[in-house]
Design a protein around this nucleic acid. Sequence first.
DNA 1: AACATTTTCAACCGCAGGAGT
DNA 2: GACTCCTGCGGTTGAAAATGT
Length: 283
Amino acid sequence: MSNITKKKCNGNEEGAEQRKGPWTLEEDTLLTNYISHNGEGRWNLLAKSSGLKRAGKSCRLRWLNYLKPDIKRGNLTPQEQLLILELHSKWGNRWSKISKYLPGRTDNDIKNYWRTRVQKQARQLNIDSNSHKFIEVVRSFWFPRLINEIKDNSYTNNIKANAPDLLGPILRDSKDLGFNNMDCSTSMSEDLKKTSQFMDFSDLETTMSLEGSRGGSSQCVSEVYSSFPCLEEEYMVAVMGSSDISALHDCHVADSKYEDDVTQDLMWNMDDIWQFNEYAHFN
DNA sequence: AACATTTTCAACCGCAGGAGT
DNA sequence: GACTCCTGCGGTTGAAAATGT
């Protein structure tokens, strides 16, 4: 396949050749330099003026999805996955809208995640990924798993920093948390409340600084969303419902970092799928 | 080691909507 | 209102990388 196409302009062959396919380092540099001097936007003009033999659309896509300085690379954190699942259940395939609530992630990233990970799971369960049933399964099984991951990560990072010798036994204990019989008819905030009943957050107190007395739900919710300080209240209400918002406002939680690749294995194993299938058939 | 299959993700395409004329 | 151009969105593709046999 040729990487060059004849550019059509107003229905006529113009003669100018336009590149397609993967971007080269030189093209990236050219685009980055141009934008640093002239700003982004007006993509067709940019394509002509910068000397790039690319369509304006292609330049825009390359910049927004790859070159822009605040683009985050690497695997999605459990928090981000949780957000995607929840927001998708509310808004469907509105990738661009969803991506606005995940700083540094593009609509393309989220779309790819959904297609390659989530839809794959739905296929394995023989459930339509856009169906109510799949949303229920996600809420009842995947959410608690992700929340558990978040808890584990925050917990183990803290232990790693402060008492590495304790890591082994603690990891074993944390695996025993049970979520498998949660009621699927509840909202996410209710799930979070139930989830918090299974969790002992007392161990997180060295990591978290909580003001005043609050229930486990607020602590849990705070921890889940503490990595997204830029989120606006509209979003928090959309995700959590209004009930947990007030407690969240004055709850300060230490940043949890996911430098280690602890998010790699969040997918379901065969036991999980078997469990989900059972669930799906009896509901 | 060689080949086949699957997964990932960057990039393309068509379409819709807004702005300008 | 009609037309053109530009931008942004969501769906799709296909090459490269990873994994399995």
